[in-house]
Structures are given as C-alpha cells and as structure tokens.
Design a protein around this nucleic acid. Structure first.
Length: 112
RNA sequence: GCAGUUGGCCGGGUGGCCGCGGCGCAGGGAGACCUGUGUCGAGGAAGGUCCGGGCUCCGCAGGGCAGGGUGCUGGGUAACUCCCAGGCCGGGGAACCGGUGGAAAGUGCAACAGAGAGAAGACCGCUUCGAUAUGUGGAUCCGCUUGCGGCCAGAUAUCGCAGUAAGGGUGAAACGGUGAGGUAAGAGCUCACCAGCGUCCCGGGUAACCGGGGCGGCUAGGCAAACCCCACCCGGAGCAAGACCAAGCAGGGGGCCGAGCUGCCCGCUCAAAGCCCCCGGGUAGGUCGCUAGAGGCCGUCGGUAACGCCGGCCCGAGAUGGAUGGCCACCCAACCGCCGGGUUUAUCGCCCGGCGGUGGACAGAACCCGGCCUAUAGGCUGGCUGCAGAG
RNA sequence: UGCCGGGUAGAUCAAUUGGCAGAUCGUCUGGUUCUGGCCCAGAAGGUUCAAGGUUCGAGUCCUUGCCCGGCAG
C-alpha cells in the first residue's frame, strides 16, 4: 500500500459518491474507480482530536495497520478519525479490520 | 556533607526485518514509469505568533500632520520590547532577586468613610474674650434686717464670637522628625540638629550618578500600564508575498480627468479609449520562489562583558491531503518490591550487590534568521553564599 | 501557514471619565384556579476564561497562557 490520495478533487469525489461505514472511533468512505490500478488511501483527522503530534501518530498507526492488509485493486479509501471523547488506540486494528470486512473490498486471496 | 542561590549542557543508545519523502547513480522502457542501489531526512523549544530584521510586491518609498511603538545611563547588534556592563530605589542574614524618563509645563482622577482629599480642613479636644447659671472665698468698698445682698477674685457647667493643626478619630493617602524657646492655647512662629527639596561652585565618572561645600526657602503628596510633555524610532502588506506555464468562463453596471492599495495635505509619477470601483462567472493543476545561512565548532588578538576582526575545520530536511513509522532483541538512566551484606546497641535512613516488574517528558519543519514568552520526565556539570563539623 | 475578531447568571446580551456587576427569558417558592397555563408577589443563581502586574481599588488598563469563531491563493 503505497498510493496516497493527493488531490482535493479525489477527496471530493469520494465524499460525494462513496459508501460510508463507521465504528466507535473510525469511519471509512470508499469508492470503486473505473480502472484497476492500485488502491489509494487518504486520511482525515480533525484538529479537535489533538495537537499535531497526536494527529500524526494516529495517521501513522493507521498506515501501519493497513500495511498488512491485502486490498482489492481499483478502490479509493478515505479513513476518518471520529471526534470521540474516549480514545483507545489498542482497539484501532480490530475496528479497521471490521470495517474492511464489512465493505467487502478485501482481496480474493485473503490476507497473509 | 546539608540548605540556599545562580549559570551552562544533554534531552535515550545499538543492531535486525518491513515501509515512507527528497536527491544521485546503474539497468530496462518510445514514454508515463518500473527494478536495484547509495545518500540525507524534525526541535530545544520546530510551539504561541509577542517583537525585530532579511526577502518579495505595492511606480518612487520623499516631506508634514494624524496615528503607533519604546523609555535610568553607556555599550553590543542587520535590528529589537533582546543581550552585556554600570547607576539609583526596594526585599533578603548573605550569595542574589525585583523595579526603573518627567507629577515645581498644563488638564484631570480619588467611590465609601471622614470636619476636611490638595498648597485642604474646626467634628471632638485645647484656649482668649463676652453672657447666663451654680457653689466657694473676701483684709479693704457700699447697703442694711449682722450674716445676707451688691461688688471683686477665682472655679465648674452651658451658650456665643474668635484663635489653634500639638492630640483623638476616618481613610490607601491628612502638607516633615526630635529638642528648646515662644504663646491665652498653639503652630517652622523662631532657633539648633537630622531627614528631604531647589540652586550654585569644586572634585570623580563618557554618562546615569556619587562625594564635599555655600546659599535659599521651610516643604512643594499619589496616579502618566489617565490625557499629556520630552527624547528617539516606524510607509503598507505579507511566500496563500510574488513571477511564469497550462486549463477554463459570460458578461453586466458605474466613475472618469482622474488614478496611484490605512487616514488627510503637499510633492512626485502614470495616463487619455485606457485605468479604477461594484456585481456576476471560471479555475482549486504544474514550475519557480525553496533552502549555504547576520550557520556552527576550535584557536589568535581587542574588549570587564555582550560582541567584533582574522585563520582553520565541519555540517547540509525541503514536504504540499503534507514524508521520520511498525515489529523485535539487547543495553542505559530512573522508579517500585523482595533478598543478602556493610554502617548503627537497635529501628529508620544511607551505601554496595543480585532477581523480578514498571518504563523515557514536552512536543512535529511549512520562506529564512535574531530574540522574547510559554510547555517539559529525568539527568550531567561550574560558580557563589550560609551552616554544621562527620547521618 | 499567515492575518483578524471575541470569551460576563442555565441562555441571549448590557455595564465610560477604573468606584457595591445589571436587564430579558428560563429556574425555584408562595398566591390566584377544581387542576395546569396566563397573571401577581418574592427569591436563588457569578472564581466577569485563567494566572500575574499597575492602582487605595480592575469586568474595564498592561503582560502571558487557554478556548471559540472568521478571512485568504
């Protein structure tokens, strides 16, 4: 997983037409593209969650979690950290996997 | 050693695997790009955005007014509200810390309380004089009823007219202190000394200021982070500045001899089918700016120091929905528990060793620097002051 | 990233030469009513975002921090 979402228009498209899923601390929007290139990712972490260090750390943890996942090609994902009061970093991997299962965008050859 | 005070520095390390951003090299490919490899990759505050500069644009960045900023003195610097040194005042036993233009240029402010709040003021008190009342005394004077009145002296109380700022009381603040003279009582009313003020002279210092002497008057309070005065400084915006390329859209209204981006005036410049203003519409892509700099370290010399000159060496982030991460092992500081030993009569504490556990704060570059301020687990180290004398 | 504006009762807002922090709505208590509302009477409710400083005295002036909101190429 290397490709990032880099343009404002990419984010706008996913937010307008993407499917929305959420759990306690996370939310996910994703959209099937017309091509079969590598899937791309973007992260949205509101300022309210914390300072720059906290927000950077959350984004990196999410990236690390997604390293080990085999995604289907041709999707654009936007991961959103929800502005909750209680924050439990340890449960992030489980939540992320649950959302991906629900979306049905995992690769045919199931992870590993 | 303990307590205090003040300055400087560090702010986890090593290795392995998988990844991320920039740049370079090699190979492949027509090209987009792919593969491999090398190298660099967050901070002391990168933070808050409180000051100051560089840089860019506003035609030039000129003058005056308005407006804003700074404020003991001298120096450092590109500049500063910063830094260094010094002066004065206050606090502390000391090291040391904190404050710092002008209130006799003018205008103004001080609720409540209090008599009075600015060169003010008689509420209580104190005192002279006058009136009335009530006791007391009377050698001498007058009347007689021979101990009473007038009269006189003095006392007390009340009232009135004045005097008085020493005392009481109010307040954050009440117009010097002590002593003597003086007075009806008092008072810088007068005098001596002290404190404080103004002014002149001499000496020291670049200066703030300090020391000494003469003269004057006898008090001239607080607040300028109130207006203000004085001295000095400041044009405006900000890298989302600004320049170029590509893509895309739709024009309409108004003003014109004015227009020129904080406000006004002057000067200056540019203009006559060009510029400005308003409404509406389109874009949200790329390249440059963009990282080597008032940079660090060491040394000589100048300087009390901040710092400067010269010489040598060293380092090298440039992202743009925004790159530093994940997993693992070992080590290190610290903390907690247990065990053993030493010190002690013993407990506690301290020191040494072993095992197990916990476990590294505040915080992330966004044009670049110099400061300030704020956040920060813990550690290393220098100076100075005081105390105790070996827990 | 840069530049502006604002924090006062539960809510919306006032407070000028710096001098006892108020108004409206809401809340509570009592009255009126068979009961509730309306109405009448009364009451409670504030570290003025926080910490320092100037002043005799600070919501107001100065410094620092925190939070909220807005603007832009």
């Amino acid at each position: 997983m290397t490709e990032r979402l880099r343009r404002r228009s990419d984010f706008a498209r996913v937010f307008e037409r993407g499917t929305y899923l959420s759990s306690d601390q996370l939310a996910l929007r994703y959209l099937r593209r017309s091509d079969d290139g590598p899937s791309r990712f973007g992260f949205v972490i509101p300022r309210r969650v914390g300072g720059a260090v906290v927000r950077n750390r959350l984004r990196r943890r999410l990236k690390a979690i997604l390293e080990g996942v085999n995604h289907s090609a041709g999707y654009d994902f936007v991961w959103i950290v929800r502005d909750g009061e209680t924050r439990e970093p340890a449960s992030l991997p489980g939540e992320a996997r649950a959302l991906l299962e629900k979306s049905g965008t995992l690769g045919e050859v199931t992870s590993r």
